[in-house]
């Protein structure tokens, strides 16, 4: 029940702070972009948009949420109730994943059409990517106080996006395949039948999500909980 309360509250918080409107606007821009670009570019751009949606936006939206909550000191009130950090993190990653999945499915339906992709695989890829990058966003957001600090800090995390260069065929190295963005890209492409589904991609992304969860949990406890009331 506590998870449900926290999840519902997160969705309402995102509504009140106009996250849903921002997402709606972006989704419309994405759909129009896909509508007007030349058809030979369409499939690659669609994959990139679907990839950037959960990963990039998950990372920055969770940063925005945590900075707003820090500004309002709401953790001082929240973590002196019976809610646990696990329940809080689950509610947060689920609420942002819901937003990412909804937008991605709408974009995919408009750009590719119904029946042109595996819904189950796309939802899995988007959900896992969203959760993984939302958690990475949390590890940064708990340490900073301003948007500027967050943007500067995010440069360090951009190393995770180097596999995009492999996607564009600029560089290629086996090491890049074990960074979380590569399996994310592979799973999204597999959902459109552009390459076969690979279980190792799923496993690598799951492992990264596990690592990001433990990291986010420990740093949330250290940088937020142990400093309540400061």
């Amino acid at each position: 029940m506590r998870f449900v309360a926290a999840f519902t509250h997160d969705v309402r918080f995102q509504f009140r702070h106009r996250f849903y409107y921002a997402y709606l606007l972006l989704t419309i821009i994405y759909i129009l972009t896909l509508w007007y670009i030349p058809s030979f570019l369409k499939s690659d751009v669609l994959i990139l948009i679907l990839f950037s949606d959960p990963c990039g936006l998950g990372f920055f939206f969770v940063g925005g949420m945590i900075l707003l909550e820090k500004e309002q000191n709401t953790y001082d009130a929240l973590f002196v109730t019976p809610i646990t950090v696990h329940q809080f993190l689950f509610a947060r990653i689920c609420s942002l994943a819901l937003l990412a999945i909804s937008a991605s499915v709408v974009i995919a339906l408009f750009a590719a059409g119904n029946g042109q992709f595996s819904l189950g695989l796309l939802v899995t890829a988007i959900a896992l990517s969203s959760v993984c990058f939302t958690l990475f966003g949390i590890t940064l957001a708990v340490r900073v106080r301003t948007l500027n600090q967050y943007l500067i800090g995010s440069v360090v995390y951009s190393v995770l996006f180097i596999p995009l260069l492999q996607f564009f065929g600029i560089i290629s190295h086996p090491f890049l395949s074990i960074l979380p963005t590569w399996p994310s890209l592979q799973l999204i492409r597999a959902s459109f039948g552009q390459e076969p589904f690979r279980i190792d991609s799923l496993l690598i992304l799951l492992i990264w999500t596990g690592i990001a969860y433990i990291w986010a949990y420990k740093w949330f406890r250290h940088y937020i909980l142990e400093k309540l009331g400061d």
Binding site: Q72, N73, A77
Partner: peptide, 21 residues
């Protein structure tokens, strides 16, 4: 455990509420 917080009430010095609510 988390049930500990069922029995205590804590109020810190600074306001800490959701401003859009």
């Amino acid at each position: 455990k988390s049930s500990f917080y069922e029995k205590i009430g804590v109020s810190f010095e600074l306001p800490n509420l959701y401003s859009k609510f």
